[in-house]
Design a protein around this nucleic acid. Structure first.
Lengths: 217, 217
DNA sequence: ATTTAAATTTAGACAAATCTAAAAATAGGT
DNA sequence: ACCTATTTTTAGATTTGTCTAAATTTAAAT
């Protein structure tokens, strides 16, 4: 597996889809900041290797083998992120870029030992679940803040967008994983929310709310 | 810097040489298990970038900039080796291959924080010195066992060859860094040595002795 | 059903890093 | 000083992953 193949698999996994609802070439190209023609070439190669289903003009979806492979890359990415935060004092907005490199290191033993060193974490610094060695996910009962009704309460457990700008916004406003959040009111005009976070009042836009996952306390 | 360029720099560094005594294209090719023509191509590219001195048919040597760059790669390699042994329980014969991959990860912060996590180690698991961030070496007063006279005593502090086979040989015979070694006698015919290691007697071939570094107690 | 717009693929080119085979330069031996 | 063997370089081809531009297919709209 080349680095490029691994990146395609990861992207396709994140875009979701299935054999009956495949992902468009264009969507992959956009996500990866590359050209559709490059995606077509790679789709052929990945299909060749049994990692994706691909029919001309119909888009791409992962095979079981492709899913398994993608999960192993995602596992590595997220374990390295935990390592960077827990052991090397990186902040959660700094880890992604470095983990993008580290996820391609090839060594089964390395990743299993890393898992052990970190005490088998279930979630990464952004609240995303870490697949187990055999590709099992710890799915959590969580909802986007933007989809919860007024009056609802919950604990912040994850972010949908993990870009540095968004994470820095959260830091600046004291929003972090583990914080208790309650919806006081919702603005009909623009969907902005009036919240309790901890015991301070906050106003956040719809766009912020649409990127925060809460679970019930 | 591409991965390939970094590997060439590292190899040239390890082969030694200087502007007045450059390294032959062939020597580099052999060490890297590639072809001389590939080395020529890369020599031109590295010269272009100011990393090596290169004159047609005269061989290659690192510039100051090239040395600095090579040292930073070697620093990464050796720090990762320490990490693998100290934090992830790798054995000293397992670390090289993985460190070859990890040394190419690009992040200043990562490597400085790793250094800190490991408590600023001075030597890697094979006894090789770890360059500091600004490229300074902790050279040690050491000698090859094969070059010491009968009766001499010392402490094993490093290995010249760090291939898995050699390291496994040492493990099997209870030879490790930190052990006290004394030369009881030397065989004129084949250069094999009769030794005390700890308080057990051993016989080792010249080839073994030529790959063990000792320092005076 | 036909036309048109959008998405997708093909064809051909390019850069990086490598190789093989042939040509050129160097160094050693007489 | 010359010839020869070795080393090194050049020239041209190959692979991987990408791109542009043109051609093709699909899907949407009338």
């Amino acid at each position: 597996m080349t680095r490029s193949e691994e990146n395609y698999l990861k992207t396709i996994f994140h875009l979701g889809g299935s054999e009956s609802t495949p992902i468009a070439t264009n969507a992959i190209a956009e996500q990866m900041e590359t050209k559709p023609s490059s995606v077509t070439d790679m789709a052929k190669k990945l299909a060749e290797k049994g990692l994706v289903h691909y029919k001309k003009y119909q888009g791409v979806s992962l095979t079981d083998y492709g899913i398994k492979t993608a999960l192993s890359i995602i596992r590595k990415h997220r374990l390295w992120e935990v390592f960077l935060v827990k052991k090397l004092d990186f902040t959660w907005d700094e880890v992604h870029e470095v983990a993008e490199q580290l996820e391609h290191i090839k060594s089964e033993k390395l990743i299993d030992k890393l898992d052990e060193l970190l005490d088998f974490p279930k979630y990464d610094p952004h609240g995303d679940p870490i697949p187990t060695r055999d590709g099992k996910f710890m799915e959590r009962d969580q909802q986007l803040l933007s989809e919860m009704p007024v009056g609802a309460k919950g604990i912040c457990v994850g972010v949908k967008d993990s870009s540095a700008v968004f994470l820095q916004y959260l830091d600046k406003h004291g929003i972090a994983l583990g914080k208790s959040i309650q919806i006081l009111s919702k603005e009909a005009f623009d969907g902005s929310l009036h919240l309790y976070i901890g015991n301070r009042e906050h106003v956040v836009s719809h766009q912020i709310a649409a990127n925060l996952y809460l679970k019930n306390e």
